[in-house]
Design a protein around this nucleic acid. Sequence first.
DNA 1: AATGAATGAGTGTTCATTCAT
DNA 2: TATGAATGAACACTCATTCAT
Lengths: 195, 195, 195, 195
Amino acid sequence: MAPIDRRKQILKAAAKSFALFGYKATTMDQVAKIANVGKGTIYTFFTNKEELFDEILHEVIIEMKNVAERELDHEQTFFNNLFRILDSLLEFREQHDLLIKLSQEVREFGTLQAKTGNAKVEGVITGYLEKELRLAQEKGEIKPCDPKVASFIMFKIYIALTSDWSHGNDPLSKEEIKQYIELFLVHGLVPDLPV
Amino acid sequence: MAPIDRRKQILKAAAKSFALFGYKATTMDQVAKIANVGKGTIYTFFTNKEELFDEILHEVIIEMKNVAERELDHEQTFFNNLFRILDSLLEFREQHDLLIKLSQEVREFGTLQAKTGNAKVEGVITGYLEKELRLAQEKGEIKPCDPKVASFIMFKIYIALTSDWSHGNDPLSKEEIKQYIELFLVHGLVPDLPV
Amino acid sequence: MAPIDRRKQILKAAAKSFALFGYKATTMDQVAKIANVGKGTIYTFFTNKEELFDEILHEVIIEMKNVAERELDHEQTFFNNLFRILDSLLEFREQHDLLIKLSQEVREFGTLQAKTGNAKVEGVITGYLEKELRLAQEKGEIKPCDPKVASFIMFKIYIALTSDWSHGNDPLSKEEIKQYIELFLVHGLVPDLPV
Amino acid sequence: MAPIDRRKQILKAAAKSFALFGYKATTMDQVAKIANVGKGTIYTFFTNKEELFDEILHEVIIEMKNVAERELDHEQTFFNNLFRILDSLLEFREQHDLLIKLSQEVREFGTLQAKTGNAKVEGVITGYLEKELRLAQEKGEIKPCDPKVASFIMFKIYIALTSDWSHGNDPLSKEEIKQYIELFLVHGLVPDLPV
DNA sequence: AATGAATGAGTGTTCATTCAT
DNA sequence: TATGAATGAACACTCATTCAT
């Protein structure tokens, strides 16, 4: 088996376990077993548990950023862009949705926090979103609100629909996710014409 | 000191520590020290760490339910009730908001998950919300949507604003929280009349 | 069992194992087993393996220094003092002879070396000896030689007789040790009158 | 590269590392890197780490014995022989002095000890010395003493001067070493005529 | 024959839980 | 009853050894 395969095997197994059980509750033995690899092998590719975790986080960030940048077109409206990017992200959800959820757990490590603080999935995504929200606001495409808070909530809603929900429920389809995002973000729950 | 006092002391200390550091990162030594109690004493009241955790979860649920039931008035509209209940919950937020966060961590335990599944804060709250959403829908107060998903999202938005946000940002005021809930849940981001 | 007993038990066991097998080859499991104590118990008294080692070293140094200082009398000749101090040291040899040997192994730890450098048994003892040798030389009691080298050798001879020798041979009696020290240090192997 | 070269390369590298860091602290990776050889290659020449160590010990012994036998001349006095042999040994000190030091570390291995007991550098050298001392004693060249103990001490003094001292001090020159051996072994520290 | 990626037994350390006082 | 000293199972990580290439 090519070394790259083994590295990927481990990353995949670790991602699965981290997403399922969290950082602390994931043991290296477990990762090794899931990856069908000797425990020592993990350490030939990653210095330690923390680095393994970081690597996974980093990969997700890179990939999501690429997707977003590929789709983003400033000629179009904010919501247009939002839904197209969403569409692309949801395309390879299978590899990533659980991982995204990890972003919520980074705070678990006292020490790690500082070091990787700005590399957090959450930070990167909301930062990105915030910038776009600000532009949209200037163009009058959305109501006035703090873009920082708004981007934070949008991110949380996305996570809730793509990841959180599927713990304990059947995963939502791509279309359903988009519908609910539209419902909550765009128009709200109140009927348009409560005559 | 009466035994009930000791029990409460421990519960309070554990709640604080669980909320601050999470389940795994909370040690019984820590809880004992915060509670100003011998470590062994904890075990005279609780069988083990897991039960201590469950108890705390349970207490929060009960209290929240009481608050909700006290405020709920089916003569009024859904949103009216929602905001009044929210108001009351936020009132004693200091004791509970961090705990709510715990609901997110329950999944941390592979084994625990199954056993305490139905005792989850999350499940109770969303179940409650779901029931009310269904009624509101029947009355035409809100747009048609799956009440289960909707209640889930609403809960997540609530957690995001009251708890998640304050990791890394200044906590939002009660008023701000209500504003954002209104913005996202009730009316959406799109300006009302983009003629 | 009084806590002091346990602490002493552990120190004794660790001393034995360190002296017998060296630092690296001594496992905490081994120490625990020899001390007839749970492994965790060691960590209630000592932060880690290194500190356990340091403590042992420190204790020996303190005790030896006390013995030496009690016996030292600058009114008397160097050799007189030397033999009286030797006498006292050999008195409680049973607790310490093996430990003394540890001084040779301190170099094993890359990191430790720097931290405890000046606390080394060897350094303390030879430093002490050196000072006395210098005085003796000024008084003409011994031949001219570098006191630093001389003290080093004297220490090594002492270790050889009290400790090294007993690995693989019956230990030498107190009297024998003194005889050999006199033979090598004081008069040399050459017969006095090789007529 | 001829296999014999590779073997020598490995032995040399291992000798260096054992001498520098000791048995336990020497890793096979380290040896392989120093020898500029694949790690697996080591195992084509030596069954395991222990055997590699033994081989090195053995080699030193053979070489020292050869040197000694070449110089030894029973027509001459004990001390004459001693100093000439010493001279020769010190000649190729660069390759071996650190190795000699290893003799002290053999005890490090609980299990190994028994198996290689009779192959110990120490044992061979002191055995040799003992024989010569016995002869010298019979000729009246040295004072009466147990040749076994005396040879042991002589060996320790030699190690101390050639090897131990240089940890933490500038190495002594060949001349200095001989001077100190003469001082301690031959005549002692007491001035000849303390009138 | 030579290699180094892969392995898992073994190490130091932590912490929930027990139990003698 | 309340305690905290004692415990050992469990964890992250290391390294001698193996084996497919």
